[in-house]
Amino acid sequence: MRIRAAVGRDGIVEVRVLMSHEMESGQRVEAGAVVPAWFISQVTATHNGRTVMTAQWGPSVSKNPYFAFKFRGGKAGDKVALSWTDNRNETRSDETTIA
């Protein structure tokens, strides 16, 4: 995952994330067979270990998902971590430092 987090003048931290995932829709047919859906289903964002946002996604989020969100109470140097779980129960977590 590529994560960018920056605190604005209003004290609100803006986080932008690019995840690497096929996000197979389950609608696509290849060689006469439907390619099974394979997608990130759950996303959790934490600030210094405290959860600030969670999300549930379906397969209609685009391939290599982009996700941007904002939260209050963060400052430069704090840790922001993102983790996802897909429908095959694979997971990935990454973190960055607020700029």
Binding site: I12, V61, S62, P65, Y66, F69, F71, R72
Partner: peptide, 10 residues
């Protein structure tokens, strides 16, 4: 503490 403002691509 989250702001109700999210962006993604669908």
């Amino acid at each position: 503490d989250a702001v109700a403002d999210v962006s993604t691509r669908i």
